[in-house]
């Protein structure tokens, strides 16, 4: 074994090799162009001032001005927008409300998603690809259209109210649309696949003889779920929660379409600053602060994923 190793030529992986660099460079180039560059631009705008101009802020870097123009531009940077965010309580409330809604809806998605994922993982092996397909199927229709569809379901004369009236559960139509309830329904519906898929992966991988072993040692099924199944599915729970929590915090479409005027979410605030007030610098500052807030869960998530990858290696 070792003799053949020594006589074998060095494997390509051991030596820097142009093809290998290319493979590494492509995703980095992608990330650089599509994430880092736009983000730097957003930071730059957040440090500018509004102006009645095109684009609606100053300074605007003039590449023709060379290094001197650049330094002039930078000297005009201001943190005024950030100060403004702390002065008006509206923003703090919007951030807080976003985080609360994200937290509550993550819990709801978990509550709904876990039984679904569990059922899928325990379904007959032949049926599982079909079930997986059904979970992914909604992605084939535009997100926007699916959220619109909920308006039709939730409105006063909508399908849900008609159904409930017809069954006789209620005598007056319920007001669901344009409330936080509608927002929660929309979020749970839209983000369910992001929870179900990692949960399913974790549950499906679990060795079922572990449950037999638990039963053999005198542990009834429900206790075995809490002692064995749930702890072993935790990586999936954590991954699913982050995948829901992080994007929901900045969610705009769902609260805008299904929520009411009192539904306060930072995504809506951001949209209003951009399009209603045309205050690009302030909107950018809102976006940057949102990102900073989310950096904490994102880093936690990354750590978690890295640890899991290590454990599995």
């Amino acid at each position: 074994m070792s003799a053949t190793d020594r006589s074998a030529p060095p494997t390509p992986g051991n030596r820097p090799n142009p093809a290998r660099w290319l493979v590494v460079a492509v995703p980095y180039l992608w990330l650089f162009l599509l994430f880092l560059v736009p983000f730097v631009i957003v930071i730059k705008i957040s440090l500018s001032l509004t102006a009645i101009a095109q684009p609606p802020y100053t300074p605007v870097f003039d590449l023709a001005g060379g290094i001197g123009g650049l330094i002039d531009g930078i000297s005009e940077f201001t943190v005024e927008n950030y100060l403004w965010l702390t002065e008006d309580a509206l923003y703090a409330r919007a951030y807080l409300s976003s985080l609360t809604i994200a937290l509550v809806s993550t819990a709801l998605v978990l509550l709904v998603g876990y039984p679904i994922a569990y059922g899928m993982a325990r379904a007959p092996k032949g049926l599982q690809p079909t079930l997986l397909m059904l979970i992914i199927l909604p992605f084939w229709t535009s997100f926007l259209i699916r959220v619109y569809a909920w308006i039709g379901i939730l409105k006063k004369e909508g399908l849900l109210n008609q159904l409930l009236l017809w069954i006789g559960v209620i005598s007056e139509p319920l007001t669901i649309l344009n409330t936080n309830t509608a927002v929660y329904i929309g979020i749970v519906y839209s983000y369910l696949p992001f929870m179900v898929l990692p949960l399913y992966a974790a549950l499906e991988r679990m060795d079922r003889t572990l449950l037999e072993a638990a039963a053999d040692l005198g542990c009834p099924p429900i206790r075995a779920f809490w002692k064995i199944t749930f702890p072993l599915s935790l990586p999936g729970v954590i991954a699913g929660c982050f995948l829901v929590f992080i994007p929901v915090t900045g969610e705009f479409v769902i609260p805008d379409l299904l929520g009411g005027s009192d539904t306060l979410m930072i995504g809506k605030t951001l949209w209003a600053e951009f399009f209603a007030n045309r205050d690009w610098p302030l909107a950018s500052a809102v976006a940057v602060v949102l990102l900073v807030i989310l950096v904490v869960p994102i880093v936690l998530f990354q750590n978690h994923e890295m640890k899991r990858a290590e454990r599995e290696a």
């Binding site: 060795d207 003889t209 572990l210 072993a213 638990a214 039963a215 053999d216 040692l217 005198g218």
Partner: peptide, 17 residues
């Protein structure tokens, strides 16, 4: 059910938690 039987089994695949 298995959890009510006065038996214990050592699994061929160990099945350690």
């Amino acid at each position: 059910p298995p959890y009510r039987r006065p038996t214990n089994m050592m699994f061929q695949s160990y099945a350690l938690f």
